Each structure stands twice: as structure tokens, then as C-alpha cells.
Amino acid sequence: MKQFLLKFFTWWSGQTFGTQLWTWRFGEKVGQDEQGNTYYRTKGRKVDPTLGFERRWVVYNGYAEATKVPPSWHGWLHHTVDVAPTEEDYAAREWEKPHVPNMTGTPSAYRPSGSTLASGRRPAATGDYQAWTPGN
């Protein structure tokens, strides 16, 4: 019962019941990326008359976070390219770094050296700053 209610009322932890029903009824699986996200389009590549092009969507593996979509699939989802990465021999360029989702709010977030979260202590003041005091 708990899983049913979660699927019915939450959108951030996987697909909702409505998305699952829509995908079952109108979608065809196109592929899956290295993070486990699954990509779909309308069956038979039908053009949606209200949009003027085929619908494409992603069902996230776990928490719904748009930065989890790698660049190869991002281009396909947003109709920048017509061919999905699974339908062609897509290979990343040698200068491309591996895709990393946004890590803000996680222990892996970027923390520069002056941040209090980086080491727990601020570096000592260098003396080139004079604090403001009221009345001066």
C-alpha cells in the first residue's frame, strides 16, 4: 500500500502512476543511459498534433534530477539531434570529460578553500581588510 501511495503522490522519486500509465499506453522504449535512466518516445514516432513533433521523455532512475541526463541524451530529448544515442555509434570526444550530475547539497559538492564547509575552519585574515563599524 505504501508503494502505491508513493507512486501516486510523489513525482521526485521515480515515475508517478500517471506517467507509468502514459508510458505503458503511448510510449516505446528508446534506450537507457549509464546511470539507469530510461528514455521513451511516442509509439511509432507519431507526431503530436498539439506540439508538431514527437514526444520524448525520461524516467529517472531514483531521484528526479535533470542534471542526471548526459549530454548525448540531452540533445535527443530536446530535439537538437534526431537520432538517439542507441540508434547510432555515439562516442564521446577524447577532450570530453565524463558526465557528472549537479552535486550541490551532497557531500561531494564543490567547496573552495575559503569555505567554512571545506575544512571546518576559515583561513586566518591577511590584514588587508578593515571591518566596518557603525558611525565611521
Rank of each mutant, 00 (worst) to 15 (best):
M1R: 10
Q3C: 02
Q3A: 13
L5I: 07
L6P: 10
L6K: 13
T10D: 05
S13G: 01
G14W: 04
G14V: 03
Q15Y: 08
Q15P: 12
F17A: 11
F17I: 04
G18P: 11
T19R: 03
L21D: 11
T23Q: 04
R25G: 03
R25F: 13
G27P: 07
G27W: 06
E28P: 01
K29Q: 12
K29Y: 13
V30P: 12
G31T: 15
G31F: 14
Q32V: 15
D33W: 09
E34D: 11
G36I: 07
G36N: 10
T38S: 11
Y39G: 07
T42I: 04
G44M: 07
V47N: 04
V47R: 14
V47Q: 07
V47I: 15
P49T: 06
T50K: 13
L51I: 00
G52S: 08
F53M: 12
E54Q: 09
R56G: 05
W57Q: 09
V58Y: 08
V58T: 13
V59D: 13
V59N: 13
Y60N: 11
N61H: 15
G62T: 03
A64K: 04
E65P: 03
T67H: 10
K68T: 12
P70H: 13
W73T: 06
H74I: 10
G75T: 02
H78M: 05
T80N: 15
V81C: 14
D82A: 15
D82C: 01
V83A: 11
P85S: 02
D89A: 05
Y90I: 01
A91W: 09
A92M: 08
A92V: 03
A92F: 05
R93Y: 07
E94M: 02
E96H: 12
K97V: 11
K97P: 07
P98D: 08
P98M: 00
V100T: 15
V100P: 04
M103E: 08
T104N: 13
T106A: 02
S108M: 14
Y110C: 00
Y110E: 01
R111G: 00
P112Q: 01
P112L: 03
L117A: 03
A118M: 02
S119V: 08
S119M: 07
R122L: 05
R122Y: 05
R122V: 02
P123L: 14
A125W: 12
A125I: 00
A125F: 08
G127D: 13
G127N: 09
D128S: 06
W132L: 07
W132M: 11
T133V: 11
T133N: 08
T133S: 15
T133L: 14
